[in-house]
Protein backbone atom coordinates (compact mmCIF):
# COMPACT_ATOMS: atom_id res chain seq x y z
CA UNK A 1 0.00 0.00 0.00
CA UNK A 2 1.72 3.13 -1.22
CA UNK A 3 1.97 6.14 1.04
CA UNK A 4 -0.65 8.66 0.06
CA UNK A 5 0.40 12.25 -0.44
CA UNK A 6 -0.44 14.26 2.65
CA UNK A 7 -2.63 17.25 2.04
CA UNK A 8 -0.72 20.47 2.68
CA UNK A 9 -3.29 21.96 5.08
CA UNK A 10 -3.16 19.25 7.74
CA UNK A 11 0.21 17.90 6.76
CA UNK A 12 1.54 17.52 10.28
CA UNK A 13 -1.41 15.60 11.66
CA UNK A 14 -1.78 13.30 8.64
CA UNK A 15 1.91 12.61 8.81
CA UNK A 16 1.74 11.74 12.47
CA UNK A 17 -1.20 9.41 11.89
CA UNK A 18 0.60 7.86 8.96
CA UNK A 19 3.64 7.18 11.10
CA UNK A 20 1.55 5.65 13.88
CA UNK A 21 -0.12 3.37 11.37
CA UNK A 22 3.23 2.39 9.96
CA UNK A 23 4.61 1.65 13.40
CA UNK A 24 1.54 -0.45 14.23
CA UNK A 25 1.99 -2.49 11.08
CA UNK A 26 5.64 -3.14 11.78
CA UNK A 27 4.83 -4.03 15.36
CA UNK A 28 2.19 -6.56 14.31
CA UNK A 29 4.44 -8.07 11.65
CA UNK A 30 7.35 -8.30 14.08
CA UNK A 31 5.31 -9.95 16.82
CA UNK A 32 3.97 -12.54 14.37
CA UNK A 33 7.42 -13.11 12.89
CA UNK A 34 8.83 -13.77 16.36
CA UNK A 35 6.09 -16.30 17.10
CA UNK A 36 6.63 -18.12 13.78
CA UNK A 37 10.40 -18.22 14.01
CA UNK A 38 10.62 -18.91 17.76
CA UNK A 39 10.71 -22.74 17.59
CA UNK A 40 13.60 -22.59 15.12
CA UNK A 41 15.36 -19.88 17.11
CA UNK A 42 15.15 -21.79 20.37
CA UNK A 43 16.45 -24.88 18.57
CA UNK A 44 19.58 -23.00 17.56
CA UNK A 45 19.99 -21.59 21.06
CA UNK A 46 19.48 -24.96 22.75
CA UNK A 47 21.89 -26.66 20.39
CA UNK A 48 24.60 -24.35 21.75
CA UNK A 49 23.80 -24.75 25.47
CA UNK A 50 24.73 -27.52 27.87
CA UNK A 51 21.95 -29.93 28.95
CA UNK A 52 22.05 -28.32 32.40
CA UNK A 53 21.52 -24.85 30.96
CA UNK A 54 18.61 -26.09 28.84
CA UNK A 55 16.86 -27.43 31.92
CA UNK A 56 17.56 -24.27 33.94
CA UNK A 57 14.59 -22.19 35.00
CA UNK A 58 14.12 -19.46 33.91
CA UNK A 59 15.31 -20.72 30.52
CA UNK A 60 18.15 -19.11 28.62
CA UNK A 61 17.19 -17.38 25.39
CA UNK A 62 20.72 -16.57 24.33
CA UNK A 63 23.84 -18.76 24.40
CA UNK A 64 26.48 -16.69 26.16
CA UNK A 65 29.10 -19.42 25.88
CA UNK A 66 28.09 -21.36 22.76
CA UNK A 67 29.13 -25.01 22.92
CA UNK A 68 30.06 -25.61 19.30
CA UNK A 69 31.30 -29.12 20.00
CA UNK A 70 27.65 -30.23 20.31
CA UNK A 71 27.56 -30.20 16.53
CA UNK A 72 30.60 -32.38 16.14
CA UNK A 73 29.09 -34.82 18.63
CA UNK A 74 25.83 -35.02 16.68
CA UNK A 75 27.85 -35.30 13.48
CA UNK A 76 30.13 -38.14 14.65
CA UNK A 77 28.61 -39.95 17.61
CA UNK A 78 25.04 -39.33 16.48
CA UNK A 79 25.93 -40.58 12.97
CA UNK A 80 24.37 -37.48 11.44
CA UNK A 81 27.12 -37.42 8.79
CA UNK A 82 26.15 -40.94 7.67
CA UNK A 83 22.42 -40.13 7.65
CA UNK A 84 23.01 -36.94 5.75
CA UNK A 85 25.02 -38.72 3.06
CA UNK A 86 22.29 -41.36 2.74
CA UNK A 87 19.60 -38.73 2.40
CA UNK A 88 21.68 -36.89 -0.18
CA UNK A 89 22.19 -40.03 -2.25
CA UNK A 90 18.56 -41.10 -2.14
CA UNK A 91 17.29 -37.58 -2.78
CA UNK A 92 19.62 -37.09 -5.75
CA UNK A 93 18.62 -40.46 -7.16
CA UNK A 94 14.89 -39.65 -6.85
CA UNK A 95 15.15 -36.08 -8.12
CA UNK A 96 17.17 -36.96 -11.19
CA UNK A 97 15.00 -40.01 -11.83
CA UNK A 98 11.77 -38.07 -11.64
CA UNK A 99 13.02 -35.32 -13.90
CA UNK A 100 14.25 -37.82 -16.49
CA UNK A 101 11.18 -40.06 -16.56
CA UNK A 102 8.85 -37.06 -16.52
CA UNK A 103 10.75 -35.41 -19.38
CA UNK A 104 10.53 -38.53 -21.52
CA UNK A 105 6.85 -39.12 -20.83
CA UNK A 106 5.92 -35.47 -21.18
CA UNK A 107 7.69 -35.32 -24.53
CA UNK A 108 5.60 -38.20 -25.82
CA UNK A 109 2.39 -36.60 -24.64
CA UNK A 110 3.27 -33.17 -26.01
CA UNK A 111 4.93 -33.91 -29.36
CA UNK A 112 4.00 -37.40 -30.53
CA UNK A 113 0.86 -39.02 -31.84
CA UNK A 114 0.14 -42.61 -30.85
CA UNK A 115 -2.78 -44.91 -30.14
CA UNK A 116 -4.31 -44.78 -26.63
CA UNK A 117 -2.68 -41.41 -25.97
CA UNK A 118 -5.66 -40.09 -24.03
CA UNK A 119 -6.10 -43.33 -22.10
CA UNK A 120 -2.45 -43.40 -21.13
CA UNK A 121 -2.60 -39.79 -20.06
CA UNK A 122 -5.53 -40.64 -17.81
CA UNK A 123 -3.45 -43.52 -16.41
CA UNK A 124 -0.71 -41.03 -15.56
CA UNK A 125 -3.18 -38.74 -13.84
CA UNK A 126 -4.75 -41.67 -12.00
CA UNK A 127 -1.47 -42.24 -10.18
CA UNK A 128 -2.07 -38.92 -8.43
CA UNK A 129 -5.19 -40.30 -6.82
CA UNK A 130 -3.48 -43.22 -5.08
CA UNK A 131 -1.79 -42.00 -1.91
CA UNK A 132 1.52 -43.75 -1.41
CA UNK A 133 0.42 -44.82 2.09
CA UNK A 134 -2.13 -47.10 0.45
CA UNK A 135 0.54 -49.07 -1.41
CA UNK A 136 3.02 -49.78 1.38
CA UNK A 137 1.83 -53.29 2.21
CA UNK A 138 2.67 -54.87 -1.13
CA UNK A 139 5.55 -52.50 -1.83
CA UNK A 140 7.25 -53.70 1.32
CA UNK A 141 6.82 -57.30 0.13
CA UNK A 142 8.08 -56.41 -3.35
CA UNK A 143 11.13 -54.54 -2.12
CA UNK A 144 11.97 -57.29 0.35
CA UNK A 145 11.68 -60.04 -2.26
CA UNK A 146 13.88 -58.07 -4.64
CA UNK A 147 16.52 -58.11 -1.91
CA UNK A 148 16.26 -54.34 -1.62
CA UNK A 149 15.49 -54.12 2.11
CA UNK A 150 18.17 -51.85 3.60
CA UNK A 151 19.41 -50.49 0.29
CA UNK A 152 19.43 -47.28 -1.70
CA UNK A 153 17.40 -48.95 -4.45
CA UNK A 154 14.69 -49.88 -2.00
CA UNK A 155 14.52 -46.30 -0.78
CA UNK A 156 14.50 -44.65 -4.19
CA UNK A 157 13.18 -46.86 -6.98
CA UNK A 158 9.45 -46.72 -6.08
CA UNK A 159 9.62 -42.92 -6.50
CA UNK A 160 11.48 -42.65 -9.78
CA UNK A 161 8.39 -41.63 -11.75
CA UNK A 162 5.52 -39.23 -11.04
CA UNK A 163 2.31 -38.40 -12.80
CA UNK A 164 2.61 -34.89 -11.43
CA UNK A 165 6.00 -34.33 -13.06
CA UNK A 166 4.85 -35.64 -16.43
CA UNK A 167 1.79 -33.40 -16.24
CA UNK A 168 3.81 -30.33 -15.27
CA UNK A 169 6.41 -30.79 -18.02
CA UNK A 170 3.80 -31.60 -20.64
CA UNK A 171 2.20 -28.22 -19.92
CA UNK A 172 5.60 -26.58 -20.40
CA UNK A 173 6.35 -28.50 -23.62
CA UNK A 174 3.00 -27.50 -25.09
CA UNK A 175 4.16 -23.88 -24.84
CA UNK A 176 7.04 -24.52 -27.22
CA UNK A 177 6.18 -22.47 -30.33
CA UNK A 178 5.18 -24.45 -33.39
CA UNK A 179 7.63 -22.38 -35.47
CA UNK A 180 10.55 -23.76 -33.52
CA UNK A 181 9.42 -27.26 -34.23
CA UNK A 182 9.23 -26.49 -37.93
CA UNK A 183 12.63 -24.82 -37.88
CA UNK A 184 14.13 -27.81 -36.11
CA UNK A 185 12.61 -30.08 -38.72
CA UNK A 186 14.20 -27.99 -41.45
CA UNK A 187 17.56 -28.40 -39.75
CA UNK A 188 17.05 -32.14 -39.75
CA UNK A 189 16.67 -32.51 -36.00
CA UNK A 190 15.50 -35.90 -34.78
CA UNK A 191 13.20 -36.21 -31.84
CA UNK A 192 16.01 -36.78 -29.36
CA UNK A 193 17.98 -33.79 -30.55
CA UNK A 194 14.85 -31.63 -30.54
CA UNK A 195 14.06 -32.77 -27.03
CA UNK A 196 17.50 -32.09 -25.60
CA UNK A 197 18.41 -28.96 -27.56
CA UNK A 198 15.08 -27.17 -27.83
CA UNK A 199 12.26 -28.52 -25.67
CA UNK A 200 14.22 -29.11 -22.46
CA UNK A 201 16.05 -25.76 -22.44
CA UNK A 202 12.78 -23.94 -23.09
CA UNK A 203 11.04 -25.80 -20.28
CA UNK A 204 13.79 -24.96 -17.81
CA UNK A 205 11.56 -23.06 -15.35
CA UNK A 206 9.16 -26.00 -15.13
CA UNK A 207 12.04 -28.45 -14.81
CA UNK A 208 13.55 -26.38 -12.01
CA UNK A 209 10.18 -26.30 -10.27
CA UNK A 210 9.82 -30.06 -10.61
CA UNK A 211 13.37 -30.61 -9.35
CA UNK A 212 12.80 -28.53 -6.25
CA UNK A 213 9.46 -30.19 -5.64
CA UNK A 214 10.95 -33.66 -6.02
CA UNK A 215 13.91 -32.75 -3.84
CA UNK A 216 11.67 -31.51 -1.06
CA UNK A 217 9.44 -34.56 -1.19
CA UNK A 218 12.32 -37.00 -1.24
CA UNK A 219 14.31 -35.27 1.48
CA UNK A 220 11.34 -35.14 3.85
CA UNK A 221 10.17 -38.72 3.41
CA UNK A 222 9.51 -40.50 6.66
CA UNK A 223 7.13 -43.47 6.42
CA UNK A 224 8.84 -45.36 3.61
CA UNK A 225 12.43 -45.07 4.90
CA UNK A 226 11.18 -46.17 8.31
CA UNK A 227 9.58 -49.24 6.74
CA UNK A 228 12.41 -50.43 4.51
CA UNK A 229 15.51 -49.74 6.58
CA UNK A 230 16.72 -51.15 9.83
CA UNK A 231 20.42 -50.73 9.35
CA UNK A 232 22.03 -47.43 10.37
CA UNK A 233 24.08 -47.56 7.20
CA UNK A 234 21.00 -46.89 5.10
CA UNK A 235 18.90 -44.75 7.41
CA UNK A 236 18.05 -41.32 6.07
CA UNK A 237 18.33 -38.16 8.07
CA UNK A 238 14.65 -37.96 9.03
CA UNK A 239 14.71 -41.41 10.58
CA UNK A 240 18.16 -40.63 11.92
CA UNK A 241 16.62 -37.87 14.01
CA UNK A 242 14.38 -40.40 15.69
CA UNK A 243 17.42 -42.56 16.36
CA UNK A 244 19.45 -39.61 17.60
CA UNK A 245 16.72 -38.53 19.98
CA UNK A 246 16.48 -42.02 21.40
CA UNK A 247 20.24 -42.41 21.90
CA UNK A 248 20.93 -38.94 23.31
CA UNK A 249 18.02 -38.80 25.68
CA UNK A 250 20.12 -37.18 28.41
CA UNK A 251 21.71 -34.78 25.93
CA UNK A 252 18.94 -32.69 24.47
CA UNK A 253 21.50 -30.28 23.05
CA UNK A 254 22.88 -32.98 20.76
CA UNK A 255 19.37 -33.73 19.51
CA UNK A 256 18.86 -30.03 18.78
CA UNK A 257 22.15 -29.88 16.90
CA UNK A 258 21.00 -32.90 14.89
CA UNK A 259 17.75 -31.11 14.08
CA UNK A 260 19.71 -28.13 12.76
CA UNK A 261 21.95 -30.39 10.68
CA UNK A 262 18.87 -32.10 9.23
CA UNK A 263 17.18 -28.79 8.45
CA UNK A 264 20.19 -26.97 7.01
CA UNK A 265 20.04 -28.33 3.42
CA UNK A 266 16.45 -27.16 3.08
CA UNK A 267 17.25 -23.78 4.62
CA UNK A 268 19.93 -23.36 1.96
CA UNK A 269 17.50 -24.49 -0.71
CA UNK A 270 14.93 -21.99 0.54
CA UNK A 271 17.41 -19.11 0.58
CA UNK A 272 18.88 -19.71 -2.86
CA UNK A 273 16.03 -21.22 -4.83
CA UNK A 274 13.10 -19.36 -3.36
CA UNK A 275 11.63 -18.56 -6.76
CA UNK A 276 11.80 -22.14 -8.06
CA UNK A 277 10.52 -23.42 -4.75
CA UNK A 278 7.52 -21.14 -4.86
CA UNK A 279 6.83 -22.12 -8.44
CA UNK A 280 7.16 -25.81 -7.68
CA UNK A 281 4.91 -25.63 -4.66
CA UNK A 282 2.26 -23.55 -6.37
CA UNK A 283 2.36 -25.29 -9.74
CA UNK A 284 -0.84 -27.16 -9.08
CA UNK A 285 -2.65 -24.39 -7.32
CA UNK A 286 -2.93 -21.52 -9.72
CA UNK A 287 -6.19 -21.49 -11.62
CA UNK A 288 -8.36 -24.51 -12.28
Amino acid sequence: MAAELPRPSSAGRTRARHLTGLAARYLLLTVLAIIVIFPLYITIVNSLLTPGQIAARPPKFFPLHPQWDTYSRAWDVGHMSRYLVNSAIVTAFITVGQVVTATLAAYAFAFLEFPFKRTLFVVFLATLMVPFEVTIITNLTTVTSLGWYDSYQGLAVPFLATGFGAFLLRQAFLQVPRDLQDAAELDGYGHWRFMLRVAVPLARPAMAALSVFAFLGAWNQYLWPLLVTKDDRYRTVQIGLKQLRATSIDQVNVTFAGVMIAALPLVILLLFFQKQLVRGLTAGAVKG
Binding site: L241, K242, V259
Partner: peptide, 20 residues
Protein backbone atom coordinates in the same frame (compact mmCIF):
# COMPACT_ATOMS: atom_id res chain seq x y z
CA UNK B 1 11.17 -15.09 4.36
CA UNK B 2 10.40 -15.64 8.04
CA UNK B 3 6.76 -16.50 7.35
CA UNK B 4 7.76 -19.04 4.70
CA UNK B 5 10.65 -20.38 6.79
CA UNK B 6 8.86 -23.48 8.03
CA UNK B 7 8.93 -25.04 4.55
CA UNK B 8 12.56 -25.67 5.42
CA UNK B 9 11.44 -28.00 8.19
CA UNK B 10 10.32 -31.55 7.72
CA UNK B 11 7.69 -33.33 9.76
CA UNK B 12 10.50 -35.05 11.67
CA UNK B 13 12.34 -31.80 12.37
CA UNK B 14 9.17 -30.09 13.57
CA UNK B 15 8.15 -33.05 15.70
CA UNK B 16 11.49 -33.35 17.44
CA UNK B 17 11.58 -29.59 18.14
CA UNK B 18 8.07 -29.50 19.55
CA UNK B 19 8.46 -32.80 21.36
CA UNK B 20 11.16 -31.12 23.39
Amino acid sequence: TIFSSTVATSVAVASVIFGT
